[in-house]
Amino acid sequence: MTDVEDNSLNPMRPYALTIAGFDPSAGAGVLADVKTLEASGVYGLGACTALTVQNDVRFDRVSWVPLADIQDQIQVLLARFRVDFIKVGLIESLPLLLKLISWLKAQNPAVRIVWDPVLKATAGYEFHAQPDAELLQTICRELALITPNRPEALRLLPAASPEAAAEALAAWCAVLLKGGHADGPEATDLLLLGGERHTLSAPRLPHGEKHGSGCVLSSAVLARLALGDDLATACQSGKAYTAAFLGSNTTLLGYHFISTLL
């Protein structure tokens, strides 16, 4: 007999799952994702892909969790909770990511997956070199959204500009190109969705740099999807949540607040 909990028993809190690395500072990875999900009105579940030795300014090393152990963490959750929305962050390799996505789709063909392609730590540690284009295409075709920043977009698909790389990625899935690495008085993200371009802008803050901001944005978008928003609305709301997080203090570790969008 299955013990899966029907989400109708908990209508105010849908479940969403983050599959990401463990950051002891809680600024990035699973801990930051779950904080974002909870503050956004979603019950956050988590599975660990890597144990990192880091803080907000230093990255020493990473120990990868084997795929079988990642799957076991997830399987015990799926046996109890209905999960239709999943985010994947730090992962050991893209071939492993494809195996994981294929396995997730076998558990729930309707699951919607957001991938935040963590290729380099804030403190400078590089996780992945340029991926194989054919493998990248296969992965992207299984995603609801990919959320690279500008350097990540160029590493995923070398092009004349981050925008051009995002346009190429958008042939395979929706793309939210994060604009935090650009210059100018506003931080503008670009959502490429079904042939449409949506620009999402917020004032660039004088002390707005935060460890794990990409994790927060992708998790905030995931939360809004779990709450029923369409993708364009979810990205707009996720941008607003992240702007509040970036402006929460002058340190590299931001604060989370209960979303006013609930």
Rank of each mutant, 00 (worst) to 15 (best):
C235K: 06
V88M: 10
L77T: 05
R13P: 00
A144G: 04
R82T: 11
G228M: 12
F22Y: 14
E134D: 09
D6S: 07
G44Q: 15
P203T: 15
L156V: 05
F257N: 15
L252S: 11
D69A: 12
A164I: 02
P117W: 08
L67A: 14
F127Y: 09
L225C: 03
W103Y: 07
E152P: 04
L246G: 07
E142L: 04
I101F: 00
L192I: 10
V83N: 06
A121P: 08
G44A: 13
L100Q: 09
P95W: 11
E186H: 13
L78G: 03
L261S: 07
T122Y: 06
D189F: 01
L78T: 02
L90Y: 11
L190G: 00
L9N: 02
E92N: 13
L261W: 05
L45D: 08
L119V: 07
I101W: 01
A20F: 03
F59D: 05
I146D: 08
A171D: 03
C48Y: 11
A244T: 14
E186C: 10
Y15I: 06
A244F: 06
T18Y: 03
I91K: 06
A153M: 01
E92T: 02
L217R: 11
L253M: 10
A182L: 12
V34K: 12
V34W: 13
E152N: 01
K239V: 05
G214A: 15
V88C: 08
K99F: 03
L225A: 00
P158K: 00
L136Q: 02
F245Q: 07
I139R: 01
P162N: 08
V42F: 10
